[in-house]
């Protein structure tokens, strides 16, 4: 069964959120629109809506993460869900319990939604495949495969600043090879009709056949950044040096670190994004990170809204109306909305 088939039900509604690959454009737009309506909630005095009241959300993070886990936790709490944070690392697996056993134990406690991060590609897909029908899974990052909520928040940021996607040239810079974020962004951007998607990295950090995902690959910043409207930087993990993938931090920064000089190749209204955490002086120069083109901080705020939107759509709740004064409707307490 393909992932696309697994995360969508017969009526075309989201069952799980595992990947942006193969997701219909309308669904992506409805995630963005729903998130839009949640933005206002964060600005209110009382930041809660009762959409997920009585539901239990488990943040199951096998890999450590601060920001992503926190935004999921805040998102779930603003939707009035009960939230449990678990960080099993590999402790239970090392005692002989398999990944599925860990999940089944938690399912037996009548939890409703799992937010899963795992170091192995395909982990969230496997959990979704074996989940009972009432349980929903959100992939919060699996290996190098996908990080769909991060990609959707990046899409939200782009739309907020640029209005749409059809006329945009977008360049993703850095360690494409090991990046689940890049893969999810590429699928989202191409689905949303982006005019051109580019990836920029040395060949050692570009995975085989990346062009088949619908992108143009560049190994130099000058060519790759020319006239782009959006630059997305990826974090370079320092351990990449030991895998003989890049020679040194200095050489990487000289060639691919985003400085004001290099940014000058791009369109004058370019925006600069970074999914974080940033390595100042390695993948981005502080002058750019804190400069006029940077939209890095607003991204974090949008992250909560996007995660609220995805949770609400999965759990069948209605998005609140955009007028902040109006009381939200009572959520459906059982089942999901159909068609």
């Amino acid at each position: 069964m393909r992932e696309t088939d697994l995360q969508i039900d017969a009526d075309g509604q989201l069952l799980h959120f595992l990947t942006t690959e193969g997701l219909h454009k309308d669904l992506m737009l409805s995630i963005l629109d729903t998130a839009e309506s949640f933005i206002t909630i964060g600005k209110r005095e009382i930041k809660k809506v009762p959409l997920l009241r009585g539901k239990t959300v488990v943040n199951l993070f096998f890999e450590t993460s601060t920001r992503t886990r926190t935004t999921f936790e805040i998102a779930a709490k603003r939707l009035s869900a009960d939230v449990i944070n678990l960080n099993p690392q590999y402790s239970s697996t090392s005692k002989g319990e398999t990944l599925l056993d860990t999940v089944r134990n938690l399912e037996a406690m009548h939890t409703d939604l799992f937010v899963v991060r795992h170091g192995n590609s395909g982990a969230a897909f496997m959990i979704a495949k074996h989940a009972p029908p009432h349980v929903r899974i959100i992939n919060a990052g699996d290996g190098r495969h996908a990080h769909p909520t991060q990609a959707m928040l990046d899409m939200f940021t782009i739309r907020a600043h640029k209005g749409g996607f059809e006329k945009l040239r977008v360049a993703i810079v850095g360690d494409i090879m090991h990046s689940r974020v890049a893969r999810s962004q590429i699928h989202a951007l191409t689905t949303l009709g982006t005019a051109e998607v580019r990836v920029i990295a040395p060949r050692t950090l570009l995975p085989a056949g990346i062009e088949r995902l619908g992108v143009h690959a560049f190994t130099d910043m000058r060519g790759g950044l020319e006239d782009v409207d959006v630059v997305i930087l990826l974090r370079l993990q320092r351990e990449r040096m030991s895998g003989a993938l890049i020679p040194s931090e200095q050489e990487y920064f000289n060639l691919y670190g985003l400085t004001e000089d290099k940014l000058a190749y791009a369109d004058k209204d370019v925006i600069v994004m970074h999914p974080g955490p940033m390595n100042r002086g390695l993948d981005i120069d502080s002058a750019v990170a804190d400069g006029a083109h940077s939209v890095i901080l607003p991204q974090v705020t949008y992250g909560i809204a996007i995660r609220m939107a995805v949770m609400a759509l999965l759990m069948g709740g209605q998005a609140p109306q955009s007028r902040p004064t109006r009381r939200t409707r009572r959520p459906a307490t059982t089942g999901r909305r159909r068609g």
Binding site: G122, A208, L213
Partner: peptide, 15 residues
């Protein structure tokens, strides 16, 4: 196998 599918799935490839 290292190729388009491994890239899509984010799985380490064997060239």
């Amino acid at each position: 196998h290292e190729g388009e599918v491994s890239t899509r799935l984010g799985l380490p490839g064997i060239p």
